[in-house]
Design a protein around this nucleic acid. Structure first.
Lengths: 260, 260
DNA sequence: GCAAGGCATGAATCTACAT
DNA sequence: GATGTAGATTCATGCCTTG
């Protein structure tokens, strides 16, 4: 029996392995994506010469291979513990989402959509050498190709969208700023990638029901827990870093007191 | 010497191998998406009419592996023949773009943006079991991590965008329908996936200059050639299917006559 | 000639259930 | 699993016909 509505403070993959097959109705994951160039790949100049990295910090960076192994391991476990009627959502940006998506497909997860979170208030690109990064991608998938009767609250979504079917590009939300953004004692953001409540809310409203069990393997600041609680879903969170476990627990406690 | 402003009728990879290193200023590619349509299932509209799917043989692959091998081979050649100051654009949807993206990264191509073409007029999801597919993704990349002085017409783009820096989500264009869409003798679409002129125009205006040499390895209906010609870029197209070579040549000829 | 309304159509991994 | 069948489901646009 999985103990619900708690954050488990431990390594993600280790914890996932303890859960039974087909246990969760919805999995929402916002995995890390601190990627750099792979160590083992050579960088070749136009004239054919090899680029030798100058910095010693080179080796400190993760390689693509390491990232892929980590990614495959945690997603494989998520696939195993996802109910056939459940769905999994995985978020990312261009640094990592393509690797994540291919690994998902290779594991047999079956894509329903790739949803674009269009950000409001995103930071501009200062040096004017690229387009402003103004979105993140959410891949929405079922356990395998044959899973058909997954939860999708079409009627509800239509009502929320002036009677029209919602599109994969209709996800327009502000980034998490201002009062919603958690700060530490010095007024600095307490978590680097805190997600807006409305984004997670849209996920749970789209693809879960009251009483469903929701898993977030990378709990971070606890946004998924807050939203799940508010919407009457049960939840389980996993978080490796003690300081974020504490942060999220504080936040959940505060929310619970306010909600009384 | 590459013979310019012509379509080469042959296998893509075979032709790419004949080009010299560092030859092209911009490569735009709209490769097969490997759509996996349900077997023997028809998609019927409420009025009884049938949706004509993309069922051409060029989009059929035996497996993900086969698709990956094909993909790696043509992208590897494109990387080789791309100038260090050039950029490559590759389009796709959720069926294929994640595989394409991972393969690009593994080859050492360095991402600048993933741009979202938000479609106007896309087909709804008939069964109400998913979100409407309303976008395609364009990955924009340089030859490798060290390529810095690639062409990006930031000032021009800002002028086109009311003085604001253009975002990766500002690409909102109609799909290719109506008069722009090429038809065969029976009034049926002549190419299953003809792209809108304005989309390709945006690509060339963003990342190329007059006189640049542009390559499209999957020429199809010839949209890239038309736009390149209109904008004063030189171009090379590759197309495997004779009927599309003829279609595109007809279109280019007609355009040239009109432009006189 | 003009306005109103009908009709065609778009890269689609578009269902649920019984046998 | 694979196959067959009943049944539920969808939106904007542009072109063309009709009045």
């Amino acid at each position: 029996m999985i103990s619900q509505n708690e954050i488990i403070h431990d390594d993600c993959i280790k914890v996932l392995k303890t859960f039974s097959d087909n246990s969760f109705d919805l999995i929402f994951a916002d995995p890390p994506y601190n990627l750099q160039l792979p160590k083992n790949k050579k960088l070749i100049r136009a004239d054919g010469s090899e680029v030798i990295p100058v910095s010693d910090s080179w080796d400190k960076f993760e390689s693509y291979e390491e990232y892929d192994i980590f990614t495959e391991n945690w997603i494989k476990e998520c696939q195993r513990i996802l109910k056939p009627t459940g769905t999994i959502w995985i978020m990312g940006m261009y640094h990592n989402i393509f690797r994540v998506g291919k690994i998902m497909q290779d594991l047999g997860l079956w894509f329903l959509n790739d949803v674009i979170w269009v950000k409001i208030d995103a930071m501009p690109n200062f040096n004017g050498r690229r387009f402003t990064n103004n979105h993140e991608t959410l891949i929405w998938a079922v356990k395998n190709k044959n899973c058909k009767n997954y939860t999708f609250n079409n009627e509800f979504l239509k009502q929320m969208n002036n009677g029209l079917q919602m599109k994969d590009t209709d996800w327009i939300f502000k980034i998490c700023k201002g009062r919603e953004r958690l700060k530490d004692g010095n007024g600095i953001k307490a978590h680097p990638t805190q997600k807006p409540l409305k984004l997670i809310q849209q996920v749970l409203l789209s693809a879960s029901r009251k009483g469903d069990l929701v898993l977030d393997p990378f709990m971070g600041s606890g946004t998924t827990a807050i939203v799940a609680k508010a919407l009457g879903r049960n939840w389980v969170g996993i978080e490796k870093e003690k300081k974020y476990v504490d942060l999220a627990n504080m936040r959940i406690k505060k929310y619970t007191e306010q909600a009384r």
